[in-house]
Write a protein that binds this DNA or RNA. Structure first.
Lengths: 129, 129
DNA sequence: CTGAATCCAATGTGATACTG
DNA sequence: CAGTATCACATTGGATTCAG
């Protein structure tokens, strides 16, 4: 429990910018993955997602909270402390998400090839005349 | 084969505007569903998707073509005729898409409840004091 | 018939600085 | 610590009009 988060989500995992299957806003999928193994504090999330500005990260979390996928808990104390965690509903989306990521990983190369072929077309004569 | 398309995609199917799982651009999922049962002409697609302007529909199709999910075929003739159909790669995405739609249908009500609860909060005192 | 061109609105994303 | 405020920018979505 409380497994360490990856140091930078942008190094690994399914390249969500390529994946045509997307979850909520641009960062929602990554946020959900960060919460997969238990509750996290805002500042903990900011480490692997350091290239997301606090405003955008907040917006993503709020959106997930609004949809009931994430619960936000404020702990009173000398310094503010807030924890985010997946609700049961949020956990239930992990499965289709994993399926989508599996598809993306499996067909990642095909997507890239198709793009290159498509983008390159029209600039050279495919008949080779 | 050549089953009729639904008359209006906006009446039925998974409400993709609510579903946090999205495929490509706003209409990609609906377009893919229209192509599920065989090739379709542009004007055929425009019927169930009549609330999508031709420009946007074209853009969506082009994007799918670029990713190798859809093949576009032009048939020469007295009047232009163009057909779109799913490639094998395009077909392969039907499965994770179905999983995502199943999730959405299953949890559709929970999402709505969560939104209402969230949007309504703050306007009345939950402690009932 | 199949889109391309143009223009515009809405939304999403982001950097920076500041606050309880 | 955990955000909010503000401004700016990019992308997307759309209506309308026009062309091959």
């Amino acid at each position: 429990m409380r497994e360490p988060l990856p140091s930078d989500m942008f190094d690994e995992l399914c390249p969500s910018s390529l994946n045509p299957i997307r979850f909520g806003d641009k960062w929602a999928a990554l946020v959900i993955r960060c919460l997969e193994h238990g509750p996290r504090r805002f500042s903990e999330l900011r480490v692997p997602l350091r290239r997301v500005s606090p405003k955008v990260l907040t917006a993503s979390l709020r959106s997930l909270e609004r949809d009931g996928l994430v619960r936000r808990t404020v702990y009173a104390g000398p310094s503010p402390r807030v924890e985010y965690e997946l609700t049961p509903l949020g956990r239930s989306i992990l499965e289709p998400m994993a399926a989508a990521c599996a598809w993306a990983e499996e067909h990642w190369a095909e997507l890239l090839e198709a793009r290159e072929a498509h983008d390159g077309a029209g600039r050279l004569d495919p008949t080779g005349s």
